[in-house]
Amino acid sequence: MKARMIAYRHQDSPIHRLGGAAKLAFFAIWSVTAMMTYDTRALGFMLAIAVAAFAVSKVKFADYGFVLYLILFFFLLNHIAIFLFSPLEGVKIYGTRHDLLHLAGRYWVTEEQLFYQFNIALKYMTVIPMALLFILTTHPGEFASSLNRIGISYRIAYSVSIALRYIPDIQRDFQNISHSAQARGIDISRKEKLLKRLKNVVGILMPLILTSVQRIETVSAAMELRGFGRGRGRTWYNARPFRTGDYAAVALVVAIAAVTAWLTFRDGSRFYNPFR
């Protein structure tokens, strides 16, 4: 329960000064671009930009370092799984085969596989820094107005704000509930058999859910009394107007997306193939 989450910290840098809406649009387009392409040159270029943006932002390692290990662990696990399931996926994709090393049975290390997995790694490495930057440099109070700004209905945008607002409160409820359950002897640790554990979990989930359903009633009554949903739109206290920097950021990401798309689909394949 003591697990930390990465969170916004107030700082000043060109990245922090960008508006939330611009950063959200940037992050969305950036992610889609990185998902779409397998072109090594484009990914390499994007990675360079991501690293540069990270440097400019001046975020502190202590604020995100602890998730990096976790990410790295899943990342490694995924790579091992890919190799175990399909050691010749690269060969299939690139259409050639250059063996480097025979491990055992069907497990050959090939240049193609290494290159394919290198590209997967690149794909993640272009998205992860941008995701971290978005979270670390955007005040959560700006999320809702930013979503609304990029075209999402204000009601749905506001539900994101409510989620962020109540996560700490619900975490505290969850902690209280599981404490009192443990004191009664409700055990959900490995010491208990799985089926018993599942039954015990209901003993924790039920109070959490009933408290939350009550909370939903109170909060919606309060919002209704204060005129939420009154109009077709609403304004936002925390919205930031689009400034030059914001336009520049969006223009940059659109340009990157366009160049990447051109590079990627020019020859009819998502993959950049150095083996042909």
């Binding site: 409510i162 989620a163 799985l194 959490l208």
Partner: peptide, 29 residues
């Protein structure tokens, strides 16, 4: 089904999803 209640339910539900997703996983054999 009150539309405002749905908005709030989405918010609180998402918060619950996040909390349980982080702290509510039970390992199996």
């Amino acid at each position: 089904r009150n539309p405002i209640e749905t908005v709030v339910a989405i918010g609180i539900g998402s918060a619950l999803f996040t909390i349980l997703g982080r702290f509510g996983s039970i390992p199996t054999w």
